[in-house]
Design a protein around this nucleic acid. Structure first.
Length: 494
DNA sequence: CTGGGGATGGGGCCC
DNA sequence: CGGGCCCCATCCCCA
């Protein structure tokens, strides 16, 4: 009998985690199985405790160290009925926009927010103890030359107090789950609420405001801080908005669409900070992915550009946001533009994978998933025109690379090069263990990876031989002989 | 298991 | 600064 490890196989399902998250997000959108309602400044969000606890240390403490676990049982009965009867958290120390963005992040791994709202999101991420978001926001703000706000002590204290008071704070919500007035929700003894302006509003955002004004790209939308548009194509926001029939909100809360039917967060206190005198909506310069999503080009749908199954790298979002900023950069500053232009011609470090790339825009399409060049025959999309051109050879039958020694013709130059190995006898890829040589590197890799190399097998056994009595040296040597014989036969046949 | 062709993706370089 | 080409890597399929 072998060891237990011999009997166990592990079958990976790489998509499982993303699909799981996607399902949870769907449940959240439909209000299904939600066992918690978060309320902040009159806005309610239905959500799942487990998801929050998995993302946020604060929520984890809230639900596990406090009395949340026991309370949850009281509200658990309603969970299956679509969130009715779920527990309610009052988190008035976090603004609705920031909370919406963080919830979106928790369920999609995509942080969708505006540069202007970034400080509020940062503060919320700090309070809720979501380190990766905190780090990403700080990096983005620093990279943008914006002020990184220091933690708000008042909010921190309120968060702490809420954490302490939580065991007695949660209870069942109204059966409807809809904020249909001030139903008798027990309130957590919190510090006095600040006046309506959200944390965003009362923070030192004047420089940012001026910054955005000089960008001249803020608009007359009801939301003073539209989410960074660059994130739109990379989340399936349009689809989501469309599905719930909310055509109005482009803000974070609006995109989240809390299923309560309550006033959209876009109508929140932030509106008090509507920028004045910015009536003209300038044409925004979007990154290619967004242009595609906006246009009628046939290649990409928003889902293809980025879906829940394909969460965008935070660094990519930062890059896109910076692109967006560049697009909004003040025109008269010719020098800055010159610098940017020159930089764009030089090899640049990819903000996502950190490789040095000569043609960064082209490279970025590999991260955004943009495939603007679609085959007219089979509709396959390509990131580059030259790839489409090569692909078209498949349909046209064109084989421009012909072998000088035989009638063989190839679609790809590299295939011809591989083919030429036949005549040169060149086998440049040699196994360093068994010294078997291969014409193609991949064959060597397959040789090693597939445990085809006798030496790999042998070494592997030497390493585990003490723990694996089931295999004997005798067997190994027999196999070795067989393989050697086979190789000899092959050579002789040739 | 190996060899060969096909297909696709990505980077560098030149124009 | 994008288009086009070349080269390379990787994977798949099939004999």
């Amino acid at each position: 009998m072998g060891s237990p490890e011999d009997d166990l196989i592990g079958i990976p399902f790489p998509d499982h985690s993303s699909e799981l998250l996607s399902c949870l997000n769907e449940q959240r959108r439909l209000g299904q199985l939600c066992d918690l309602t978060i309320r902040t400044q009159g806005i309610e969000y239905h959500t799942h405790r487990a998801v929050l606890a998995a993302c946020s240390h604060y929520f984890k403490k809230l639900f596990t160290e406090g009395g949340g676990g026991t309370v949850m049982r009281t509200g658990g009965g309603g969970a299956a009925s679509g969130g009715a009867g779920a527990s309610v958290c009052e988190l008035n120390f976090v603004g609705p926009e920031a909370l919406g963005a963080l919830l979106e992040f928790a369920y999609t791994a995509i942080l969708t927010t505006s540069i202007a709202n970034m400080p509020a999101v940062l503060q919320a991420a700090r309070l809720l103890e979501i380190p990766c978001v905190t780090a990403a926001c700080m990096e983005l703000l620093q990279g943008s030359g914006l002020e990184v706000p220091s933690p708000d002590e008042d909010d921190c204290e309120r968060a702490r107090q809420y954490l302490k008071a939580f065991p007695t704070a949660t209870t069942t919500a109204s059966t409807s789950g809809v904020p249909n007035g001030e139903d008798s929700l027990p309130q957590v003894p919190l510090l006095p609420l600040p006046p309506p302006p959200s944390p965003v509003a009362h923070r030192s955002c004047k420089p940012r405001k001026a910054f955005l004004q000089t960008k001249g790209a803020r608009e007359t939308h009801p939301v003073p801080e539209a989410p960074t548009v660059l994130t739109h194509p990379l989340t399936n926001k349009e689809e989501m908005v469309g599905r719930v029939g909310n055509s109005g909100g482009s803000g974070l809360g609006g995109s989240y669409n809390p299923p309560t039917g309550a006033a959209s967060p876009v109508d929140g206190p932030l509106n008090s900070e509507v920028f004045e005198g910015e009536e003209e909506e300038e044409e925004m310069v979007y990154p290619p992915a967004f242009r595609l999503a906006q246009s009628n080009e046939p290649s990409l749908s928003p889902q293809e550009l980025g879906s829940n199954e394909d969460p965008i790298d935070p660094n990519l979002m930062a890059y896109l946001s910076l692109l967006h900023q560049d697009a909004l950069a003040p025109g008269p500053d010719g020098q800055n533009k010159l610098v940017r232009k020159r930089n764009s011609q030089m090899p640049q470090e990819c903000p996502v994978c950190h490789k040095i790339i000569h043609k960064l825009p082209r490279h970025m399409r590999t991260h955004t998933g943009e495939k603007p060049y679609a085959c007219g025959v089979c509709s396959i999309g390509f990131t580059r025109n030259d790839k489409l051109k090569i692909h078209m050879r498949k349909h046209t039958g064109e084989r421009p690379y012909s072998c000088p020694h035989c009638p063989a013709r190839f679609q790809h130059s590299y295939d011809l090069k591989n083919h030429m190995h036949l005549y040169t006898g060149d086998r440049p890829h040699e196994c360093h263990l068994c010294h078997k040589a291969f014409a193609k590197k991949y064959h060597l890799q397959r040789h090693l990876k597939g445990q085809n190399c006798l030496e790999v097998r042998t070494q592997g056994h030497r390493e585990h031989v003490s723990g694996q009595p089931g295999l004997h040296r005798e067997t190994l040597s027999r196999k070795k002989q067989t393989n050697t014989q086979k190789r000899q036969d092959g050579i002789n046949n040739k």
